[in-house]
Design a protein around this nucleic acid. Sequence first.
DNA 1: GACTAACCGAGACGGTACGTCTTGTCTTGGG
DNA 2: CCCAAGACAAGACGTACCGTCTCGGTTAGTC
Lengths: 221, 221, 221, 221
Amino acid sequence: MSEPSKTPPTSKDVRPGPGRKRSEASRLAILSATRELIGELGYERLSIGGIASRAGVGKDTIYRWWPSKGMVVADAVLEEAQPFYLAPPARSGSVDQDVRAWVHALARDFVDPVRAGRIRAVTAAASEDPATAERLYERFTQVQRTGLIDRLRLAAEAGEVRPDADFGAVVDAILGSLMYWVTARRADLSIASVDSLLDVLLRGLRVAPESEPEPADGRKA
Amino acid sequence: MSEPSKTPPTSKDVRPGPGRKRSEASRLAILSATRELIGELGYERLSIGGIASRAGVGKDTIYRWWPSKGMVVADAVLEEAQPFYLAPPARSGSVDQDVRAWVHALARDFVDPVRAGRIRAVTAAASEDPATAERLYERFTQVQRTGLIDRLRLAAEAGEVRPDADFGAVVDAILGSLMYWVTARRADLSIASVDSLLDVLLRGLRVAPESEPEPADGRKA
Amino acid sequence: MSEPSKTPPTSKDVRPGPGRKRSEASRLAILSATRELIGELGYERLSIGGIASRAGVGKDTIYRWWPSKGMVVADAVLEEAQPFYLAPPARSGSVDQDVRAWVHALARDFVDPVRAGRIRAVTAAASEDPATAERLYERFTQVQRTGLIDRLRLAAEAGEVRPDADFGAVVDAILGSLMYWVTARRADLSIASVDSLLDVLLRGLRVAPESEPEPADGRKA
Amino acid sequence: MSEPSKTPPTSKDVRPGPGRKRSEASRLAILSATRELIGELGYERLSIGGIASRAGVGKDTIYRWWPSKGMVVADAVLEEAQPFYLAPPARSGSVDQDVRAWVHALARDFVDPVRAGRIRAVTAAASEDPATAERLYERFTQVQRTGLIDRLRLAAEAGEVRPDADFGAVVDAILGSLMYWVTARRADLSIASVDSLLDVLLRGLRVAPESEPEPADGRKA
DNA sequence: GACTAACCGAGACGGTACGTCTTGTCTTGGG
DNA sequence: CCCAAGACAAGACGTACCGTCTCGGTTAGTC
């Protein structure tokens, strides 16, 4: 979940060669110090020097393995990310049940102040460095997005939801809402609101009970 | 749209007193230079000194009137924000038409690279300074949010949409999606996706055609 | 002792014309505030803004009448300089008595901590601004120097001291010693040391008791 | 003549420890740039940033090793101070010859415009910062003072000069005069004046040729 | 008694320098 | 070759003053 990002020793391309091996202790100390300092200072006031000093590590050891502060933060947060929401939703029941259960689990995590702080840190990191954004998207967002989309597609095949909806847009609305609540609105992310949004979305996705003639009016494209 | 932020001369509480008056030319030069530099450098590489130098202004003149880089950016962007999406959606037709028209207009703005860059800048500013976040929320997000919510409430009174939905959550899903697309996903915000999301949401909000028995299953709270 | 230095209303060249007259109250407040702040902060940490604020005066009122911080300090100190050492030494006795009495009076002033602080301030002012140095030399040092030299010349005419000595050099040694003690050596200026120096100098100036054959050896030029 | 002033590695108290060593090249570049800028701008208009920029060095490298502008100037000037006047006067002849030779050498240095400029700079530095004054006194003035006093004391033992004079006061008059000429009087320091002062002082120090009864009159203490 | 010019307080202005902080690189000595 | 320590060049930070420039408001004269 956080191998060297700069020179990833992908399998065999690096000869074991002479020289001291990378210190796992240092790597862990750096990521752990980073998580601590995110909690104490937030992303902006975090500094590479501060992490090195807290971790009892030379600054160069950080620069040797990570290209930027954002990447360190990304790895630090990813390392402790809960595994359950990197797994796709269950397929054992109705879409409603499965999606709701999965989103609830994620939302509960977002509600925790420590986790929310890390989400904000990681968001700030992404917003100032495209490479970090890319990494986070690949390793975090995309996994969730794909999992949810696939579950919806399965439901479509099962005839539970309309097959012609843009599932990507729907999933983005769910994940975007959560992000929006912990970053932009900084407010009370309530489980009730999440639930209510899911109500509307799932109802909107449901196959028309009869021959409802299309949304009809107001469509642009 | 960008009166002094530090000592807002709220109506009459500031006597015209002695001393040179604030230079409107400087204020405009600062905000204009800020917008230019956001486009050229992005928020992170923007510096107070750089703004001052580009604007032909002393750094103190910036620090005298704004408490942080974020606030300068907020004012710079707010000053040129289009007025139409600070106005509420029209009430002249179906909810579908009115909401769609309003969201389209906003989305078209988000698609413009210059505007999108400013949105990202303003988002970064908000994510590193709560005071800036607060200002932006008050002056930008809240206005839009309230406008949309009120339009939905009106529709509820008119029997167009279900009155028991959490309109706040729905609106946050719309605005959150847009934010999410220009910041986190950094991807192609397509009008088609926006439209598709609106389809699902509006359909989900529509009053049940008959005695649909409630979402029923999977509800948590 | 401290008329306007910038635009000295030398007699008649300025028509009395209409317009408000210079405020004597402001002038006094400025010089007085300057003396206070010299005591509290020393010359280096003194600022024009600080003087203006302490004096309850606009900065421009200072800049209108004085060209530099050094000049304000010069005037502030000159205004309260004791008159006795701006008068020449008495001519009522032996050179020894007259010179010693005059130098004692001056030295006693230099020993006072407040006065010594002002001397140091004025010295710093002179060392950073030639115009201030010039003004202080004219109004302070030169007066003393000329007075002492004249007294020694009178003694030479009276046959009390050797007429071929360089009285300027001797007087500079006296005044230079005092300056040196309060500025460079920052040490204990003791009246005893002054006395001892005067012993040596006056003895060295005394006419040779008999046909002493000249210093003879070691002369360079 | 200019080891680190902040953390002087006095012999063994600093373990050689890990970490990059202080760059001698930077140290020399800083002191050399300082001397250049003293000549071009004078002490007052000298700035740390200017020194750093001229030396091709970061500001921090200056602040790391010197506590103030004054100290940098002190080290810069001390480093190129001529060694001869930090050595005591010769003891190879009459006091007259030895003292005169030594003072001439010093005075010739003071006459040189570049050296005089440095003396003025160092004086200004001392006058605005006690710590700098202390350092300069220890490393420069005190050495000269002690050397001269010792030579006079030796002469006293040899019966060349009166043993009861305050040699400190006499030496201060010599050194003070020189300082006074280059700083306060800003005037023509002429070798002739120095010589004349030495005439008077040395004559005044000479043992009374016969039973001269004491200065007698006018003595205070 | 109005006019008018200069002075005054206040304080904003464009600048320069400050001393601190952080960045990313380089160097040293030890493992 | 890795690592901790830490010096280095670069440059942004926010503060303090500089000396200049409006602002209204206040005094004197002169019409």
